[in-house]
């Protein structure tokens, strides 16, 4: 340490080039910072969903249990999932409002699978702050969120209140006429 300090004073010809010392400092700090940053990631990422939580991400559901006009709530990814067998009147009301002014405009046909208009599958989590809306409330014949008063229609589209988006339709597919796979 003392040697190099003396060397630095006597000038570059003695191997004490200050720029070389700066390089050592910067390289050391960069290595330490890079190391700290890469170590920080595991400590942050450990809070993200674990492998077993991700593994439970899809379920199958038997539709024959749901009568016309009935709704079954199942738990999917920790959230309620509404599987609703809509009546002809509900579908008609939803289609009639396709052109109405909406916050998050979407046609009813885009929210169901082709030819399966009676089956509405929704994530039952209000897009405002995540409460569970109840069916049959509000003036649009659909869902009403008790927390902050968002009103959804029979297609699960947001019509009134603070929620910004329609009730989300999860990724799902019909495995047969009476069976769906969600997720």
């Amino acid at each position: 340490m003392a040697d190099t300090a003396v060397g630095a004073k006597t000038g570059p010809e003695h191997g004490g080039d200050p720029s070389r010392r700066d390089f050592i400092y910067i390289a050391t700090i960069a290595a330490a910072a890079g190391g700290a940053a890469s170590l920080a990631w595991p400590f942050i990422d450990q809070m993200n969903p674990s492998a077993d939580t991700l593994a439970l991400a899809s379920i199958e559901f038997d539709l024959s249990k749901v009568a016309s006009g009935q709704q079954v709530t199942v738990k999917w990814r920790g959230k309620p999932l509404f599987v609703r067998n809509r009546t002809a009147a509900e579908i008609a009301a939803a289609v009639k409002d396709d052109g109405a002014a909406m916050k998050d405009p979407q046609k009813d046909a885009d929210r169901v699978k082709p030819g399966k208009a009676q089956w509405l599958v929704l994530i039952g989590s209000c897009t405002h702050l995540g409460c569970v809306p109840t069916f049959g409330g509000g003036e649009y014949g659909g869902w009403f969120c008790p927390c902050h008063g968002s009103v959804y229609d029979t297609s699960g589209r947001i019509r009134k209140g603070p929620a910004p988006l329609n009730l989300a339709v999860p990724e799902y597919a019909f495995l047969s006429d009476t069976k769906v796979k969600i997720g």
């Binding site: 809070m47 993200n48 969903p49 674990s50 939580t53 991400a57 990814r77 920790g78």
Partner: peptide, 17 residues
Amino acid sequence: TTWLWGGFAVDNPTLNR
């Protein structure tokens, strides 16, 4: 929110943290 929950909803991992 997913990071805070440790899942897709408030659940056991959320309670533990």
